[in-house]
Nucleic acid binder design. Structure first.
Length: 275
DNA sequence: ATGGTAGGGATCCTA
């Protein structure tokens, strides 16, 4: 009996959500925090200066908060029920730290980060090359993190659908932004260096389809209603963390809300193995 | 079929 209690207490729920403006979505966020009760939340596209971040209502839900925001665009944050330490704003080697796209902290003996990879606009655009450069610099930093030999989880909007299974229409997205060969190569480079895509690992052990893990549906042309989605939000785990995956799922309820974000939260549960 | 919708905040940029 006591042992089950111990295992229960060591389960940790970590969510990643591109909220697309925390001020517009604040009420939805609070409702969801109270209902879903995640231990750690990694947010992207908060779209708010740090001085205007709505700290109080979130702290009232029992969370500590660290933020890295800017005006109008981007912006990342970490919420945790545990103390947040060793906070890092941006990552070493990030070429353009004025774009608020990365924040990292240690909480409850786990290193977590929230990343918002550039969208890239369209293949060949200046913003596309900016995205590829960001991914290259990010790759080098993630190698440094691997060297720590810690449990590390980087959740966020990577703006990459890793394979054709991760888009609702592979032909439509062939050579297009979010699914182009160079973006996918950048993704694989990170994966092949030792990071575990939590969903890919979970799919390998369960009878589920990749479409179960779509996290983004375009606001336009009734994409949500027709389930024309993409899997572009991901959790990357070091092997030390991947060994503890219990479940992973997408909270699609939020995408069905009135005035929703165009992304749904990706939710990972870890279990500490008792040996 | 090169549109469509949403957010920020400024009369367009980003996604």
């Amino acid at each position: 009996m006591w042992m089950w209690q111990l295992i229960f207490n060591l389960t940790m729920k970590i969510a990643s959500w591109n909220i697309n403006s925390i001020r517009t979505r604040l009420e939805q966020l609070i409702t969801w925090l109270n209902e879903s009760n995640p231990d750690i939340v990694l947010l992207q596209e908060t779209k708010v200066l740090d001085e205007n971040f709505p700290f109080e209502p979130i702290e009232d839900c029992g969370y500590n908060i660290v933020v890295h925001g800017q005006k109008s665009y981007n912006g990342v944050a970490i919420l945790s029920k545990f103390p947040l330490e060793d906070i890092q704003i941006g990552f070493p080697g990030q070429k353009d730290p004025s774009q608020a796209r990365y924040i990292e902290a240690v909480t409850n003996n786990l290193r977590v980060a929230s990343v918002y990879v550039p969208n890239g606009q369209e293949v060949g655009h200046d913003k596309y090359h900016y995205k590829l450069k960001f991914l290259e610099d990010f790759f080098h930093y993630t190698n440094q993190l691997q060297g720590l030999n810690e449990r590390v989880i980087i959740g966020g909007d990577y703006n990459i659908a890793p394979t054709d299974l991760d888009v609702y229409d592979a032909k439509k997205f062939q050579d297009r932004i979010l699914a182009s060969p160079l973006e996918r190569r950048a993704w694989r480079k990170i994966i092949h260096s030792g990071w575990i895509d939590a969903v890919a690992a979970y799919l390998g052990t369960n009878d589920l389809n990749a479409e179960t893990f779509y996290t983004w549906w375009d606001y336009r042309q009734g994409s949500w209603e027709q389930n024309r989605g993409l899997r572009i939000d991901h959790f990357l785990l070091t092997p030390q963390a991947a060994d503890q995956i219990k479940t992973i799922s997408v909270d699609t309820d939020l995408r069905g809300n009135i005035r929703p974000s165009d992304h749904a939260p990706l939710i990972l549960e870890l279990t500490q193995l008792i040996v």
